[in-house]
Amino acid sequence: MLAGINDGIVASDHSSGTIDLPGAGLDLHAGGLVGLAEGLISESYATGAVTSQQGNVGGLVNLTLFSDIERSFATGHLQAPAPHYGKGGIAAQILEPGDPGRDTVWDTQTRGTNIAVASGPNGGTVNTAQGLTTAQMSTPSSFSAAYDFGPNGVWAMPAGATHPILRWQLAP
């Protein structure tokens, strides 16, 4: 996880670590990139698995509160104890209005869920958030036009990759 709480801006960043919270209150904010999002998350991604023994889990964030998430994605596996807790490809919970899902995607096969948000006001759907298969995640044309894969764009798709990376991650 990149940040426990984001009340500012996370832009052009990523997290690849595994999040494994065994219980006892720590599980309240298990997210792949950010635990509690109160700010902007833009052009970022998370690839690590997220596991919680006592709460919902979210691919990018756990809990959003007046947060905007745009042009970002998540791919790692999600694990939450059923039937009481849920898995959201983008977020575990939305508590207040915002736009947690503008042109966001998640890998439905590796994440193990077809739901964008496990718990929220819109019953698991979020604006233009969409689930993609692993094969679709490896194809730039599967992403909305808002993702810039151009020669000077933010995103790049290396040969043989299963998901995009940020252009700055390419070897010089």
Rank of each mutant, 00 (worst) to 15 (best):
P164M: 01
Q136K: 13
G160E: 05
V105W: 00
G55V: 00
G58K: 09
Y85M: 06
V61C: 07
V154H: 08
P172E: 12
S142N: 07
M157F: 08
S138D: 00
A3W: 04
V50S: 03
F149I: 15
W106K: 12
V50T: 11
G48R: 03
W155C: 15
F149W: 14
T18V: 09
L60F: 07
G48Y: 09
A74H: 06
T110S: 12
T75L: 09
G88V: 10
V50R: 08
D107N: 11
G120L: 04
L166H: 07
G124W: 03
G76K: 14
K87R: 10
T51S: 13
Q93C: 01
G32Q: 02
G58Q: 13
Q136R: 14
T75E: 02
Q79C: 06
H29Q: 14
V154N: 09
L60P: 02
A11N: 04
R71C: 05
V154S: 02
G153I: 13
N152F: 02
L95Q: 07
G86D: 05
G88N: 04
S72L: 02
T128R: 01
R167F: 15
T104E: 00
Q53L: 14
Q93E: 05
T51I: 15
L95A: 09
T51R: 10
W155Y: 15
T104D: 00
T104F: 10
N6C: 04
A80G: 03
I115N: 02
T139K: 03
G112V: 01
D20S: 14
L170D: 05
P81S: 04
L36I: 11
V57R: 11
L36P: 05
A118T: 12
S12Y: 11
A24K: 14
E38V: 11
G31D: 03
Q54P: 10
T125I: 12
Q136D: 12
H14G: 02
D148V: 15
G86S: 09
G153S: 09
N6R: 01
A37W: 01
S119T: 15
G4M: 11
T133E: 09
N6M: 04
A118E: 08
I165K: 10
S141C: 14
A82W: 03
T51P: 03
K87T: 02
I41R: 06
P83Q: 13
T18Y: 04
G101A: 01
D13T: 12
